[in-house]
Design a protein around this nucleic acid. Structure first.
Lengths: 207, 207
DNA sequence: CGTACTTTTGAATCGCATCAAATCTGGTGG
DNA sequence: CCACCAGATTTGATGCGATTCAAAAGTACG
């Protein structure tokens, strides 16, 4: 994933050496409700889903990770409150929980870095929530490019199909909306590069 | 707000004493793009919206806060990258940015507490993103109660109208979905108390 | 007792999900 | 090189559910 490398570099050398690689086959399980929290996990590739069987027997998905840390908040807890299952074959790194927490306490540079990582994640997630509250596919696309891109340009790091999921849309709806935006002259698409085009003062009488 | 009191209690005494109260009239501005970051803000009441004028002149909302910290990630930055405007008359607390950052560095208890607060916020936001990706109002309601409540029961801290916004629905759609769930015997509503009822093994032949 | 707000219901419309299927793409092995 | 496969990408037709607009009833508060 895009930012996974950066995350890995934020981890102090000593802690990184204690990491062990974990490979998950599709549909295999990383941990279950009630398991002791023994490690902090970083998803390198694939997809891991956190879910819980609800009161009603309905499964509730709490997170879908395609890169980055999962269940960070569980570090404060003794046991997990949800299941983690690989939606696709995945590679992860496991950092021993105790060592991780010790680093956070004793290594002040890592502590600040970790706060910065979390605050940044919070910022991104809040923007995503706002985006998902928009009603049309076109608005979500524009919002995404404005919020995650630079100066109206973004190079997607994922396939459009996966992007559709992140936007809370079916891939069909995304493709159609992209086409409409291109037809309207609002957006230029070339492969995974998306560019918003400046509005050509077509406003009907703004005098 | 619900958790605002808890957040306030997490802040060390010395830092809390340096806080100044800020009142914002509706539509008044807290800060603008380019302003120097001088304080960390905690929203006590009302609503503050973070937004940015996008490349296209379209305004993009990045966050809508009805309680809790806003723009935490900006503490790492010298200037703001978005505008903050009060959507309603609001009360906030302003903590001097330098003192806040110093506390995070020097007060290890506060540092850990802050990490815990951020990790918890991340967890909640991820669940909210998953919830907003659900297609029907009923699914979002059940997901909310399962994820945010305890044993299928939740006492709403906000009016249903505000809850609708958080669920990415109009209030009409929410009321109608609540009614359908009650009619189906899935949910009991009394005022702001919502309770999921155990599924009455009405499964059509699960043998 | 009046005002502002939430809660509730109704009818028409719009946009996305769904199902179906064709095309295109990159990578594999013969 | 070509055949082939598993994906992603693209287009079409249909139905459903939420939005939208409108309005009434309930509720809290000064």
């Amino acid at each position: 994933m895009h930012s996974t490398r950066v995350l890995l570099q934020s981890i102090p050398e000593g802690l990184r050496r204690q990491a062990s690689a974990v490979h998950l086959a599709q549909d295999s399980c990383l941990f279950r409700v009630g398991d002791h929290v023994r490690a902090a996990f970083l998803v390198l590739s694939g997809e891991v889903r956190l879910a819980r069987i609800g009161f009603q027997g309905v499964e509730v998905t709490l997170q879908r990770s395609r890169g980055g840390f999962i269940a960070e908040a569980s570090l404060d807890s003794k046991v997990y409150h949800c299941d983690a299952v690989a939606t696709a074959a995945s590679d992860l790194l496991a950092f021993p929980a105790e060592a991780f927490k010790r680093s956070l306490t004793e290594d002040s540079a890592f502590s600040r870095r970790w706060q910065s990582i979390l605050a940044n994640e919070v910022r991104k997630l809040r923007a995503q929530c706002e985006r998902l509250c928009l009603r049309t596919a076109e608005e979500r696309i524009v919002h995404y490019i404005e919020a995650e891109g630079v100066a109206g340009v973004i190079e997607l790091q994922i396939a459009k199909k996966a992007w559709a999921t992140e936007l809370g849309l079916t891939h069909e709806a995304l493709y159609r909306a992209l086409r409409r935006l291109q037809a309207a002259g609002t957006l230029a698409v070339s492969g995974r590069r998306l560019e918003l085009l400046a509005a050509r003062s077509e406003q009907p009488q703004t005098d």
